[in-house]
Design a protein around this nucleic acid. Structure first.
Lengths: 205, 205
DNA sequence: TGTAATAAACAACAGGTTGTTCATTATCAT
DNA sequence: ATGATAATGAACAACCTGTTGTTTATTACA
């Protein structure tokens, strides 16, 4: 069995590969880095890399897979700790709470997330994350935030709007050092989304 | 002189190179395509390519440069033709009109835009476009839409939010075939931005 | 019209990366 | 301690890259 026999060497090797990946993405970008770069930085033989991954894309895919799995677990949690001291109505409560825990998780994974979501990151992951955001807040799940009725605009464009907007804010947060707390980021996002960007910009409506 | 002597061969060669580029981006993505792919598809010698461009990045940069130049020209235009029949107040008029002509231009360049903004496109261009959007609507120019005062949220996050959101809508529009008219897309974007995504989703506030 | 200059197009080459294999060595689990 | 397994170093064919020197076609001018 695979799980019953966790070889320490394998764990160490994979660990150093992933550290090297993050380092190199920040340094020269995912596109530009080579497998040789990774193995040199990770101080392992190039053949060893190919023993674990098909190529750099396979490595990236497997890293991203773990992130997506964590994120989907996030949506199924309850967060009683953050419910207190909220000054927003119940309709915005669910997305607010989700956003708090989302940013908490992003902070935890900030090394990898900053790399893949940064200007030298992986576009396909951003596309995937965008889709995930939409499905979480507006998809076909019973807790869906947006129902496909009474929409003022076509649902696909509203989806694209919100999905990309939140990722843009996340990118900005990661790039600028992640100084604001998850609660503060959730407040910012909720404020803009509830009142609209124009209003949040100080314009009267 | 260069402009006084436009060699027809050069024009033909560059034309086929760019067509091949768009085709290959859609086919296998910008990251994966090679100079050889381009020249094979364009039916020219690989050496000919290097006579015009340093590498595929240089080619991309020059294509994108033209787009950005066109876009910056757009911001300096007046659009009397679309001013009629508007049912929005003056504060949203300027961005609305800009958005209309923006989508008109995107439709014109849909082949290239769909490729670079698509899931296999060029991330650096998207970053650049995002920044352009922000500066156009909210930057330091005298016609700036958003002033750095009375903001309900930090300006950097509002910038990231709106900049990425509009690009997300553009991507969705291009991917889904660009069926809506530029006026309709401007209406959609203005509706969401003025009232907020939550309201546009049919939720009461 | 004929000749020289110009510039595109080309084939061939050296350098580097990729993905694979194999014998050897080091490390792990029990 | 020992059998099993992972990592290593080296070698390889295949591929892509960017440059070289050369040929061809167009343009300018006498």
């Amino acid at each position: 069995m695979r799980n019953s026999n966790p070889d320490l060497r394998v764990i160490r090797t994979k660990e150093s590969i992933r550290l090297a990946l993050v380092e190199l993405i920040n340094e020269k970008g995912f596109d530009a880095l080579t497998v040789k770069d990774i193995t040199t930085s990770a101080r392992i033989n190039r053949g060893t890399f190919y023993a674990h991954y098909q190529d750099k894309f396979d490595l990236m895919a497997k890293c991203e897979e773990e992130i997506m799995l964590d994120l989907s677990r996030l949506t199924k949690q309850n967060y009683p700790s953050v419910i207190a001291a909220l000054e927003i109505d119940s309709q915005t409560l669910t997305p607010f709470i989700f956003t708090v825990s989302l940013f908490e998780y992003l902070h935890l994974q900030s090394g990898f997330m900053k790399a893949v979501l940064g200007p030298r990151g992986d576009l396909s992951f951003q596309t995937r994350l965008k889709k995930f955001m939409w499905e979480t807040l507006h998809g076909n799940n019973p807790n869906a935030f947006v129902k496909e009725e009474n929409l003022l605009v076509p649902g696909q464009y509203l989806a694209a709007y919100m999905g990309t907007a939140i990722i843009g804010v996340i990118q900005q947060w990661l790039e600028s050092g992640g100084k604001e707390s998850p609660q503060e980021m959730a407040r910012i996002l909720t404020t803009i989304s509830v009142n609209g960007p124009f209003f949040a910009a100080g314009l009267k409506k």
